[in-house]
Computed example of a mutant assay.
Amino acid sequence: MKKWIVGAFALILSALLPLSVMAAGGNVHLDKANNDLTDQASLQRGAQTFMSYCSGCHSTQYQRYQRVATDLGIPEDLMKENLMFDPNAKIGDLMTNSIPEDAAAKWFGAPPPDLTLVARVRGVDWLYTYLRSFYADPNRPFGVNNITFPNVGMPHVLEGLQGIPEPVYATHTVDGKEHKVVESTRVDKMGELTTKEYDQTVRDLVNFLEYSGDPVKLERHALGWWVMAFLALFTIIVILLKKEYWRDVH
């Protein structure tokens, strides 16, 4: 029995370990996103940011415009007018993009991934940190690099909002040798937003991506409490029934 339990535990751990490593993003410190899926205004702002800055390359092809509009409380006419940039798209269509996959692979080295489930794969803290970790690097094809995702192949699409982050270096000694690494960033030339406003914009975007990866999360959690309450009540009834049934036997 002990061997069976140990083997089962090892199997579960081996399955979960790759996910935990991927979500943690290596040894990089991750800032807390502090998302709130009940904040509908934040989700609406996040959807607007995604469609304005991300949807040109990335899709959320497992979501539909109409479902997003309904869930986030966006009237369909406003959805069509402000968040649907494909003139041929219908409100019931999937949220794909029109960028040719072969052309995207040529421009970026690989087709930009679909982001419907990115928050579930990477984790919301990883996304929040990643989008705030770009810095200027003239040696990279798009002139930027990223602390959380070194040698990233993606441009800093939110640079107009944040500004141009500059790297802040630190020196670490490993095996007696000094290594210069990028430890943080600073923004000397601000964009359209202040640092606080930019952080909130990123939080809204990550909030939307978390919703996109699990649209029924709040409903599922609410239902879970009812299920737990039912099981608790059912357990009490079963215990009382058992006592009543066995009373005459003993």
Rank of each mutant, 00 (worst) to 15 (best):
Y62K: 10
I99W: 00
T70E: 15
E101T: 11
V121L: 11
H58F: 08
Y65R: 00
P112F: 01
K80L: 08
H58S: 09
A47N: 08
M51W: 00
G73K: 08
L117M: 12
R67Q: 15
S55L: 03
M51I: 00
P113H: 09
E76G: 01
Q66M: 05
G46I: 01
K90L: 04
G73R: 04
P100F: 05
E76M: 07
D77K: 04
R122H: 13
A47R: 01
K106E: 15
N88S: 04
D77T: 01
D93K: 14
K106V: 08
K80P: 03
C57K: 12
E81I: 01
D86R: 05
S52C: 02
F50H: 06
D114I: 10
A89D: 06
L117C: 02
N97R: 02
P111G: 07
I91D: 14
G46C: 06
L43F: 06
T96F: 04
L83K: 00
T60F: 07
E76L: 10
A104W: 09
D71N: 14
P112H: 04
R45D: 08
P113N: 11
A119C: 14
M51T: 02
K90C: 02
V68F: 00
L72F: 12
A89G: 00
A119P: 10
A104S: 10
Q48H: 14
